[in-house]
Design a protein around this nucleic acid. Structure first.
Lengths: 106, 106
DNA sequence: GCATTATGCAACCTGAGGGTTGCATATGTC
DNA sequence: GACATATGCAACCCTCAGGTTGCATAATGC
């Protein structure tokens, strides 16, 4: 499976998006912390974090008996790349950006 | 299911992304045209186009015995909205854009 | 040492997504 | 009208993602 392919899959799940959002909001959270409030068992959360780790969106480090998680958003760029050609359908700022870049390189 | 939720699901499938790409490249294609080259039956393609239509990404119109399809990319904005807060991880142009907008409104 | 906490591991269950086949129906062409 | 073309519809199949439960193991606190 191509890399970007797997990233799309990973991000398609709402639970995993929540996990990413939480880690963006506060890095270094443990499995237990991340599982709080989610409507599923801790083991299920582990699986979700594993898929996120597999595609490089989450890094894991050990601290004593805890497993701490950090976000690495860079793989999301693949999604952005796919999305960009469609963006003119809604994003009028793109025009502003394009103009701006042209101003930089006359 | 919230709307953006369904859009994520729709876009997660590689076949459906190909269909969207094709329609962006050339609007108004029929079912038969869109099915060409895809490793599956025409009926399977119909199902994919139906899911895309359900989330508003594809519009369908009838022309004689043909069913023609058009892209409506606007629902993708929901994905972009989710993605944006992560973008600073890779997109250094964002900074340029921000600066530019501030210049506009001093 | 012992209880508690945080996590790992494995087997199992289930629904639905993505695919198929077979046949029906409408439109176009000659 | 007869034949070909483009699509619709329905039943069926199978894999696997996402969840569960049960138990094992490693750190920590007292």
């Amino acid at each position: 499976m191509r890399a970007v392919e797997a990233v799309f899959d990973a991000v398609a799940d709402p639970t995993r998006r929540v996990l990413l959002d939480r880690l963006r909001d506060r890095p270094g959270q443990s499995l237990g912390e991340l599982a709080v409030g989610l409507p599923m068992s801790r083991q299920a959360v582990t699986k979700h974090l594993d898929t996120l780790r597999r595609v490089g969106l989450v890094r894991v480090r050990r601290a004593g008996r805890e497993r701490l998680h950090d976000l690495d958003a860079r793989p999301l760029e693949g999604i952005d790349d796919w999305l960009r050609p469609y963006a003119e359908a809604w994003d009028r700022r793109l025009e502003a950006l394009r103009t701006h870049l042209e101003e930089d390189r006359p």
